[in-house]
Design a protein around this nucleic acid. Structure first.
Lengths: 369, 369
DNA sequence: CTGAAAGCGCTTACAG
DNA sequence: CTGAAAGCGCTTACAG
């Protein structure tokens, strides 16, 4: 029990075994497989334990990973546009980190400038430093990016089907439907939709729910009220501002259903610029029920997606697939769909008693040559 | 050039060397040390490159880490209270991930329930899976938690000096001073401070700046106006609500300087409950200049700490210390202090012309038996 | 200019 | 009940 570490540094299994007076194999068994160490003398087991504790032995994960081919780490790949990590990302990431930690797994974050560069970088990420990867809202297709076959992937809100990858999504169509229906129930019928980027499946599903709710209420779709903005506050503000300028003097929409909370915040800004009050003059609703939805005044009516839970589920599914044989050979897994929930708040009021017109904008018209 | 991988799986260096018809050592040199491979025939180098590309060779990081003792990964430890990752964390984390990625380093997040449990868990984290660690706003002392000596640490906003650890902080005292001075310049003099948790160095520094600004303007400190709330919106709301109830009928403060933006948002909520408008009736200011400060209406006057840059600097300093001999033997490194910046916004207005009294609260008084 | 060999710290059949 | 040995994939002196 006198022997210390050979090199004055971190203790290794060899140090422990030498100190305990047993072989490396025995030390390893005692420390890592308590159940199969039943066949080892209690006295021996105790000696090993004491030695490990005395030497502050910690297994070297790199060495262990080399033989077990498991790094006990899950990777998360996400696009960080313009250096901004959004709240959407934060919520999901939180769910992932927490769930992973509960299962003794680490989480390594990989941020990408855009999904186009993902092809080569994702491959780099998979060089034995992670056991599986979660893709956050990937927009690439199977044709653009071939995912490495040797580790499993799980995606959240993928924009297209990726072979062999389970996708976790939320029922955005139902959310958009419920939200639009809610607006209609409050007496609104001239309902505008500031939609997300054209072509993105999530944006399309929200549009689809919007249309279905209008149809269900027999409200004809007004093409002028369906505008593609994007997913940021700046784009929302810009889109609403442009719309107001173009439609000055025409009937004011009763409500605006925005692609997400950020867009709703930008939209409200544009409305405030021309003196319109939310919800007295016009109601506004968002989507995602992010932190921002509750931080703004008035608080935003929104649709809650259980982002935290979705992240946690991603970890579960990923872990279940790690180490399992040939996931590729399995049939394409079905998507996991989470329900969403309407979160009614102050930004949606009753329809105004009298119809209003879009105010003439004080803002200088966009300078066109 | 016919040989494929031995086991149908991922190609190893051995596969590459066999395919290229060279030794493993040569393949390794060509692939990893282009400069010292100058002494290798161009033809040989080319053969190795072609073979590596053809086999889609990717070095196994676990194996490399085992010999080089570098995982190319930095760890970030932070406390996630109540499952909430705050914006404060998000901003810094963003700076860290981005800076690390630029230097080819991965970032692994470790979340803790509290810093008390940090002792054992931090030790676990350092089992060769990271090369260094960044501590986010640690509150433990050296006596409570002994950091492992074999890897370097850098802290951000540490609450007490940790031996051998560089701390990155911002000049919170100056920020609080500038903010309070700004309020005074706008004509306010009955200025309340909803402070952070007692005992935390950051909270104390903000209090100190507040006091110094009052003293500089010869405004006597009113003990009733200095209240400890905490760092969350709920605590801010609660503290303000309690204060209003207790002080009904007394002169209303002109302005409230809150420990951070979340507290300011909670505070505004409490003010709104009794019909007080910001900034017409009372001005409110926050601290941190988080996303929330700009998301609320009216936007919050705040103090900007360059969190993103602080995270990036942490990575730089950490990388500089990784692999360098005995950081422990060096003298205690000096803290790195970042300047802060006042961000004046709409939540602070001019002092009202007439003094107001704290309105009687409509809320039922706390039921005491 | 290139290769054979040792070794990083661990796990796991396989012998005794 | 316990130990000797091979091997995970790589890097790096050290020989030729």
């Amino acid at each position: 029990m006198i022997a210390k570490t050979k090199n004055g540094g971190v203790a290794t299994l060899a140090d422990v075994s030498r100190t305990a007076g047993v072989s490396i194999a025995t030390a390893s068994t005692v420390l890592n497989r308590p159940w199969s160490s039943k066949h080892i003398t209690p006295a021996t087991r105790e000696r090993v334990r004491v030695a490990a504790a005395a030497l502050r032995y910690r297994p070297n994960l790199a060495a262990r990973a080399l033989v077990s081919r498991r790094m006990q780490t899950v990777g998360v790949a996400a696009v960080v546009d313009g250096g901004e990590l959004s709240h959407y990302f934060l919520e999901i990431f939180n769910g992932i980190v927490t769930a992973a930690a509960q299962r003794g797994q680490n989480t390594t974050a990989f941020t990408l400038r855009d999904w186009q560069q993902a092809a080569e970088r994702i491959r780099d990420f998979c060089d034995g430093r992670i056991d599986g990867m979660i893709l956050l809202a990937p927009t690439f297709t199977h044709a653009q990016v071939q995912l490495p076959a040797h580790i499993p992937f799980v995606s959240i809100h993928a924009n297209s089907a990726l072979p062999g990858v389970v996708n976790i999504e939320s029922d955005e169509e139902a959310g958009a439907f419920a939200l639009t229906q809610h607006l209609i129930a409050r007496g609104h019928w001239r309902i505008m939709h500031l939609a997300g980027p054209a072509g993105l499946i999530g944006a399309e599903r929200r549009i689809s729910g919007y249309k279905r709710a209008l149809a269900a209420a027999r409200i004809p779709l007004d093409r002028e009220l369906l505008v593609h903005a994007g997913y940021t506050a700046a784009l929302g503000c810009e889109a609403m501002r442009a719309w107001l300028q173009k439609h000055a003097g025409e009937p004011l929409p009763h409500a605006v259903f925005c692609a997400n909370d950020a867009v709703a915040i930008g939209c409200s800004e544009a409305l405030a610029e021309v003196g319109l009050r939310v919800p007295a003059d016009i109601s506004v609703a968002g989507f995602d029920d992010s932190f921002a939805a509750r931080a703004v005044v008035p608080q935003l009516t929104s649709v809650r997606q259980p982002l935290r839970e979705m992240g946690a589920r991603a970890v579960e599914l990923l872990l279940a697939r790690i180490g399992r044989a040939s996931p590729a050979s399995a049939a394409q897994p079905k998507a996991v769909v989470f329900p969403v929930e309407l979160a009614p708040r102050a930004s949606v009021g009753a329809a105004p008693r009298v119809e209003q017109a879009v105010p003439a904008t004080a803002v200088a018209a966009a300078r066109t040559p």
